[in-house]
Design a protein around this nucleic acid. Structure first.
Lengths: 151, 151
DNA sequence: TAATATAGTTAGCCTTCCCTAACTTTGCAA
DNA sequence: TTGCAAAGTTAGGGAAGGCTAACTATATTA
């Protein structure tokens, strides 16, 4: 079970970025974390101090950043949820990938656990439905085309 | 058309609270705004200064707060979106009213305009579907009951 | 190996939003 | 009309999160 580390949306982003970079190139450099999140290098340094304090990252000045065991599992859980949300935003709502990515990162915090839990199940449901003859994403696309925008 | 006043989630909450209080009791007092948002009275004072600066509220120390014409239309637009989102959270996802309310307030900012626009249309679509034989909310409820929780 | 470029850190500052404590204003009641 | 309670404001501060500029460490290259 993932513990509650009281992570802010921002810290989750850092965690996920480290996970992604680690899997891509097997190490995460401060500068690359900064680039992937669009923040300054100094902001990364600050965040690494916090993640180290929380026991989620192995941080040593002037060294690559790695995740601790806890950090890895927390990051994986975050990434899992983000992936599902992102797919809903892209495949059902039909927004662009980067927009979906950003929204997925923010969603959990701002919407809160209850909504996210339900929303994840809802997405699961929608996915199931498509397989059972009612392709919701598809129907929604049609709906969008047929009705004029007025929102 | 509603202009972009660069309102933070927090300022939108204040705006909406003023609108609601005004319609309920025809005037908005600092203390009631504070109570309805769960913040201190001094926080309200601060927010009122900002809303006045942006031309959205008529603020005079020691007087009731009212909305300007712009403030009223901005607040109405915010309230409209919140209402739709809230209904999705409650009627489709099945969460509690207060949880839904909070999430609706946060959603727009954190998710961004594209997602919200699409999401509002999606909710509209879901509503339409229910009328046309496929009651999505209902189906989802059944789905929730039939499948075990594992999120 | 020395010089320079790149990466990382630190210091100091800003913004937003909130808080408490203390003060001022207003309004009601004796 | 005075006098107190309630409402509102101000002052001061804190937590998050970000930034730039300047400094330090590391790495590359001539």
């Amino acid at each position: 079970m993932a513990k509650n580390y009281n992570l802010s949306a921002s810290l989750e982003d850092y965690l996920e970025a480290i996970l992604n970079l680690s899997s891509e190139s097997s190490f995460a450099r401060s500068k690359d974390i900064a680039k992937s999140l669009g923040v300054s290098r100094s902001s990364v340094t600050g965040a690494m101090h916090v993640l180290k304090e929380k026991g989620l990252a192995n941080y040593k000045p002037y060294d690559y950043v790695t995740l601790t065991e806890s950090g890895r599992s927390a990051a994986a859980e975050i990434a899992r949820k983000h992936k599902i949300l992102k797919s809903f935003f892209i495949d059902v709502l039909g927004v662009e990938g980067d927009v979906a990515q950003k929204a997925a990162c923010k969603a959990e915090h701002e919407l809160g656990p209850e909504i996210i839990t339900k929303l994840l199940r809802f997405i699961e449901f929608v996915t199931q439905s498509s397989k059972n003859g009612f392709d919701l994403a598809d129907e929604f696309q049609k709906f969008c085309k047929s009705s004029k925008q007025h929102v």
